[in-house]
């Protein structure tokens, strides 16, 4: 066992380093964990998340793949059926669609259709989200497509600490997990003020990451800020944007970072909304049939008699992700600020 197994220290990590640490630890602990994807081997990934892993764990456990997401996902399922625990990388979430049939019809259904004879203990890592001038093919937030699928989990971390702990939990989970990494906050907790200098993780408390093994359980949200005025449900990059915007408006909001969309931590959501009486949902993904619609329905069903204002949804627009007009699309401080004024109007 490596030192990391008994290590109790912490160090500053950005989200990439935290993900790399999680992969390294899981591969060290379990010889069945395997990493593959486009450019993940010798080079270490276009975002460097797998840097050094091939040199340490060998070419048969960390390797480059042909450019076919269908193949990557199908091969991962076969490896899972054999008894391995593959962690494929889809280079950008925008490229995941060729793998959709393998993911939706196969990985997510295998346990059910075989009555448990075969399972898919697979974690699919994929950078998602915009704010990096990636245009429509490097910026999408497709989580709502996958939360609609029965039999798979969807996890989105918002900090380096959570990224490492959630990724370890995802890899050890015996069901397929889509692990979407908000690439805009790989280097720092971007607050949505795109025209101002960005911070990096070195100053953020959640950039202090244990070097050893720990898990952040799937299905548990984090109340990242307690408050009384309203509840804001968000995840990924939007956690930091919302935190900055309520500070600007001096509103005592309770911010809930969902961390896992499926299975959802409904208890935390319900308790918070019943306490504050107001609920705002913020995500970067397109609006129609987005995960915010599900959240809105759940809050309405469970907290209707506690609500003092209509539920407010702040999202990206129902357009492809634009390039030059990126910040007009992005649900940033202005849009969130206006929604805050609306929901707090009669308070």
């Amino acid at each position: 066992m490596s030192d990391a197994m008994t290590d109790t220290g912490t160090t500053r990590m950005n989200m990439i380093q935290a993900i790399n640490s999680a992969l390294d630890l899981c591969m060290t602990r379990d010889p069945d964990v395997l990493v593959m994807g486009e450019d993940v081997g010798y080079f270490g990934g276009v975002f460097r998340a797998t840097a050094g892993l091939q040199a340490k764990h060998g070419k048969t456990r960390v390797f480059d793949t042909p450019i076919t997401e269908t193949g990557i996902m199908g091969v991962a399922i076969g490896m899972g059926a054999y008894g391995l625990r593959p962690v494929p990388e889809i280079q950008f979430a925008d490229y995941i669609y060729p793998a959709l049939d393998q993911l939706v019809s196969e990985a997510a259904r295998l346990r059910y259709r075989s009555a448990g004879e075969f399972t898919s203990p697979i974690t699919i890592r994929s950078p998602y989200g915009g704010g990096i001038f990636g245009g429509q093919t490097h910026s999408q937030s497709p989580e709502g497509i996958f939360t609609h699928v029965s039999g798979m989990k969807t996890v989105i971390p918002a900090t380096p600490y959570d990224a490492k702990g959630l990724l370890i939990a995802a890899i050890e989970d015996n069901d397929p997990v889509l692990f979407l990494e908000p690439k805009r906050i790989y280097n720092g907790p971007f607050n949505g003020y795109w025209d101002k200098p960005s911070e990096n993780w070195s100053k953020h408390p959640a950039g202090d990451v244990p070097t050893g093994y720990y898990k952040v359980p799937l299905g548990k949200a984090a109340v990242v800020r307690e408050g009384e005025a309203l509840t804001i449900l968000c995840y990924g990059t939007m956690v930091h944007v919302c935190t900055a915007v309520i500070a600007e408006h001096n509103i005592d909001a309770e911010i809930v970072d969902l961390r896992t969309l499926v299975p959802l931590d409904i208890e935390t959501i319900e308790a918070s909304v019943k306490k504050t009486g107001r609920c705002m949902i913020v995500h970067e993904a397109t609006r129609t049939s987005g995960f915010g619609a599900e959240l809105s329905a759940l809050v309405q069903e469970r907290c209707f008699y506690h609500l003092e204002a209509p539920i407010e949804r702040v999202t990206g627009y129902d357009t492809p992700y634009p390039h030059s007009l990126e910040w007009a699309y992005f649900p940033g401080p202005v849009r969130i600020g206006q929604a805050l004024k609306k929901i707090m109007k009669d308070a």
Binding site: L34, T70, G71, V75, I77, G78, M79, A81, Y82
Partner: peptide, 13 residues
């Protein structure tokens, strides 16, 4: 592709 993945796993092991 699933069969290929199974075969690759067998070879890798």
């Amino acid at each position: 592709p699933q069969a290929v993945g199974w075969a690759m796993a067998s070879a890798a092991k």
